[in-house]
Design a protein around this nucleic acid. Structure first.
Length: 779
DNA sequence: GTATTATCTAAGTCT
DNA sequence: TAGATAATAC
């Protein structure tokens, strides 16, 4: 048992329980990865062949890290364990067994952009209104059908689905689904959901294949089980039916992927599926301070449905949760950056000790700007990823087309890029003909010279293109990934086109991106093969398989750079940081506007907030902004309802001081004077839980309301826009309270411009010009 | 068939 | 605001 010595009692029991089904309910920070790691190591030490173990994780990075840790414990045999995400592990199996489900093994994996583009085309072809049939919405319907293993035929036979669609005026979704699936098939492509759907089909319809993998895999471990969907659930259930050696690990409180079909019932129903299920609860949190654990508990207790458990910690009490407010998103950014800067100095912390977490990717912008101004290095995970840039997609599309000629999305992207004189008129003709003959564009094009759809000249150009792609394909098995990739970049003319277009900053960047892609392929080519892959040359096909399911979260911080982490809360799941900033704590943003209509959605948002809080080890900072830019428009916002759920015992509320520091107008000051009056009238309308809590809460809310009132009235009676707009950088100005100062910079759109003013005696202040009655002293 | 200009719409989270 | 698409001119 020496191996498991480093674990606490429950952890040990969970790790040592190897035979039969078990479920580990693991609270945030309770060491579940540790338990999983040691359980696998323990299995192998016990004599189980690593070849017989399948471990499914949420990200490929998690799998990689776990593998490395097991290797540290028991050596290189760990490499033979099959580890990865559902999507990556089963796409591997699908390639091996492709012929059983009527696919070629070189099928392409379509990402959501590809899927969306097909849906758009279908909507257009079917002459449906794209305002009624929004691609995202249609795709969401199709995706959830697939995750529940409903085929197009099932869909069109399902009265309840059809009537739901009809009632919402979208009766054609079933038809779109049918056509969509035909197009994917014709392109030899699968979308993300197909990888799971088709695995189910494979295992359901081919008893021999099912038995083969049941014999191969004797032990199954599934991490983040609360985030599996029905399709994933069934795959595991089928494969584990023979051995029943299945371990699932999860935390219902951290279920945040219902929107993509995750079904919390999977975890709640485990004991129905496996009557001899053994359940372990990891309740001790090793990650966070008492304050953080307590506040997280207080938040999650607002949710109705939960598995009973008590998360506790023996760590220090720690700092209180810091609650902050600013007038705008820009200022929120600089507040965060300033805080990071000062903690770095006072606590001798590194950049890597900090994470800034937000609800939506678009919020990264203001944080980025602020960090850059303060010269703090950062790295954004997610968002517009490298692989979704145009120039990268173009080149990758060539690779895709060379590997799978039927890949129509790739084909349409590159057939006339660089320009070959094959325009949209010809392509439309080809597409219509291909649809009529139910054949792929490629098949039609290979016969182009025999048909008379196109003029001779155009046909010739297409013939040349087809030949070029064929020539590249001859090298797929002969050349390594880099050599072929490089060949394609050069011979197609992409490389030279981008080289020639380095006129501006954007052009230079595009060229550099392509170079970066090529060098990453080079790196890939030189890496060692994973044990689970056959020992063979690192080909372009392997590279493309690798990146199809590779997400930003999988990217390692290879150079071990000292950077602040910026990511969505979703992406932060499973991670931890000493200092965590959760920004944009505003109604309609977090919780998201889309979630407000249903209780279940709000509860998911709340779990998301729980996840955010529990990422913190030492201290958590929450902030909200009174206004924020959305699509280039300024929008005003209210503090998030979640803030009113915080138990004030654990909160240090800075919002009052912060709001008052912006009092540039007499009206705000008069507001201060009448504070108590307003406060009382507000309190009488609320039924506080506890005095302390309500007090803080009321402060936040009344402040915000007053602020809005003030803004409205000042806009009307205060400085006119003309006058506010006449203030320019470099001017000397006078402020009633701050005195004399010089305008450093001016930013923001007309009507909402802000000035950073350096005052002689009051320091540097950011002022909203339409409120701040600045007098111009010197032009 | 291609270049230029006007107009639209998007960002909710992810494999 | 910015990128994508449609409309228009060449």
């Amino acid at each position: 048992m020496a191996l498991l010595d480093g674990l606490n009692k429950v952890q040990q029991e969970a790790a040592a329980y190897t035979e039969g089904p078990s479920m580990i309910i693991a609270g945030a920070g309770s060491g579940k990865t540790r338990v999983l790691t040691y359980k696998i190591a323990h299995l192998i030490e016990k004599g189980v062949d690593p070849f017989n173990i399948m471990s499914l994780t949420f990200t490929n990075k998690a799998a990689k890290e776990m593998k490395a840790r097991i290797e540290e414990i028991i050596g290189t045999q760990a490499r033979s364990v099959w580890m990865g995400t559902f999507h990556s592990v089963f796409s591997k199996i699908l390639r091996i067994e492709a012929d059983k489900i009527g696919y070629p093994s070189n099928f392409t994996i379509y990402d959501s952009d590809d899927s969306k583009s097909i849906i758009r085309k279908i909507i257009k072809e079917e002459q449906l209104d794209d305002k009624t049939y929004k691609p995202n919405l249609v795709l969401g319907r199709i995706s959830s059908a697939k995750n529940n293993l409903i085929s197009p035929r099932d869909y069109n036979n399902n009265a309840s689905l059809l009537s739901t669609d009809k009632e919402s005026g979208k009766g054609k979704i079933g038809d779109i689904y049918t056509i969509y699936q035909e197009r994917l098939k014709r392109a030899s492509a699968m979308d993300f959901d197909d990888l799971l759907f088709n695995t189910n089909v494979l295992l359901r319809d081919n008893a021999d294949v099912l038995i083969k993998y049941q014999r191969r895999f004797k032990y199954f471990l599934v991490d983040e089980y609360q985030d599996t969907n029905h399709s994933q659930y069934l795959i595991v259930k089928r494969l584990a039916a023979q051995s029943e050696n299945i371990t699932v690990v999860g935390d219902d409180a951290q279920s945040i992927y219902a929107f993509r079909g995750a079904n919390i019932q999977n975890i709640l129903n485990m004991n129905k599926d496996y009557t001899n299920l053994k359940t372990f609860k990891l309740e001790q949190n090793y990650r966070s301070t008492q304050n953080i654990v307590n506040i997280a508990n207080s938040i999650i207790s607002n949710n109705k449905k939960q598995i009973e458990k008590t998360i506790w910690t023996s760590n220090d009490i720690g700092e209180k949760i810091s609650l902050n407010s600013t007038l705008s998103d820009t200022e929120e950014g600089s507040l965060v950056a300033r805080n990071i800067f000062s903690i770095k100095n006072t606590q001798h912390a590194n950049n890597t000790d900090f994470a800034i977490l937000y609800r939506t990717n678009s919020q990264s912008r203001s944080m980025e700007d602020a960090l850059r101004k303060m010269n703090i290095a950062y790295r954004i995970y997610g968002g517009l990823s490298f692989y979704s840039r145009k120039e990268i997609k173009d080149l990758l599309s060539y690779y895709r087309l060379v590997i799978n000629h039927n890949d129509e999305e790739a084909m349409m992207r590159v057939i006339n890029y660089p320009k070959r004189g094959i325009g949209s008129t010809s392509l439309d003709k080809l597409r219509i003909e291909a649809n009529r003959l139910q054949m792929s564009l490629w098949d039609l094009m290979t016969n182009i010279m025999q048909s008379n759809i196109l003029a001779k000249g155009t046909a010739n150009k297409i013939y040349d293109f087809v030949n070029m792609i064929r020539t590249f394909a001859l090298d797929l098995k002969k050349k390594n990934a880099y050599d072929l990739a490089n060949d394609i970049a050069k011979k197609t003319g992409i490389y030279s086109t981008l080289y020639a277009a380095r006129e501006d900053q954007d052009g230079i960047m595009r060229f550099e991106n392509v170079e970066e892609l090529l060098s990453s392929i080079k790196e890939f080519t030189e890496e060692e093969n994973d044990e689970a892959d056959a020992v063979e040359m690192r080909t372009l096909e392997l590279f493309m398989e690798d990146i199809a399911l590779h997400t930003d979260a999988d990217k390692n911080n290879e150079e071990n750079q000292d950077v602040v982490t910026l990511m969505t809360i979703h992406a932060s799941k499973g991670l931890e940081f000493p200092y965590v900033f959760v920004v944009g704590m505003e109604e309609n943003l977090f919780p998201s506007m889309m979630s407000l209509t249903s209780r279940a959605d709000i509860e998911e948002e709340r779990r998301l907030f729980y996840v955010a809080l529990t990422r913190g080890e030492k201290q958590v900072f929450l902030s909200y902004a009174g206004s924020r830019y959305k699509w280039g428009n300024l929008q005003y916002s209210e503090p998030s309802r979640f803030l009113s759920e915080l138990d004030s015992k654990y909160v240090e509320d800075n919002t009052m001081d912060q709001l008052l520091s912006y009092d540039q107008s007499p009206i705000v000051r008069s507001m201060q004077a009448t504070k108590n009056k307003d406060f009382k009238s507000f309190v009488s309308k609320t039924k506080p839980k506890s005095k302390l809590q309500s007090r803080k809460q009321v402060d936040i809310q009344t402040n915000n309301k007053k602020l809005k009132r003030v803004e409205k009235s000042t806009v009307r009676s205060g400085v006119s826009h003309d006058q506010a707009n006449s203030i320019k950088e470099g001017m000397e100005v006078f402020h009633d309270r701050f005195g004399r100062g010089k305008v450093e910079t001016i930013e923001g759109p007309k009507g909402d411009r802000k000035a950073i003013v350096v005052f002689a005696n009051s320091g540097t202040k950011t002022l909203i010009l339409k409120f701040a009655k600045l007098r111009i002293l010197k032009q």
